[in-house]
């Protein structure tokens, strides 16, 4: 378990999220994509819900109880989930760290 205690910068969080996405959907797909903070989870990254479950688990394993990512996602309705982009997740993690 690599639970962290130090505060990450926006860029560090972005790189970490990119690493998790690569682990979940596979390097061969990520190579074809230009992942940016504007990338939407469902439309651009084409992540389905079981992949988002895996992604949530990686966040939980990394940040521990510091961040309730699954709870945060659960509070969204389907339209909000569809519009979810990487930048929103980075902001949420940043907020939880402060």
């Amino acid at each position: 378990m690599d639970t962290i205690t130090t505060k990450l910068s926006r860029e560090e969080i972005f790189n970490l999220m990119k690493k998790f996405i690569t682990e979940v959907i596979g390097e061969e797909f990520v190579e074809e994509m230009d992942i940016t903070p504007e990338s939407s989870f469902t439309k651009d990254l084409e992540m389905d819900s079981i992949e988002i479950v895996s992604f949530s688990e990686k966040i939980k394993a990394h940040f521990g109880d510091q961040i309730d990512f699954t709870g945060w996602l659960s509070s969204m309705d389907l339209d909000q989930l569809i519009n979810l982009n990487l930048g929103m997740i980075i902001s949420y993690i940043e907020e939880c760290q402060s």
């Binding site: 819900s49 079981i50 988002i52 479950v53 895996s54 699954t70 709870g71 996602l73």
Partner: peptide, 30 residues
């Protein structure tokens, strides 16, 4: 389908009072 049909929606509602177990059927999900 797979367990994610419940994971972000129905399961958290039930988990306010219960231990909730979800699993992927064989050849489904992960």
């Amino acid at each position: 389908s797979n367990l994610s049909v419940y994971y972000f929606s129905v399961a958290p509602i039930l988990a306010t009072h219960f231990h909730v177990v979800l699993y992927d059927l064989k050849s489904h999900g992960m």
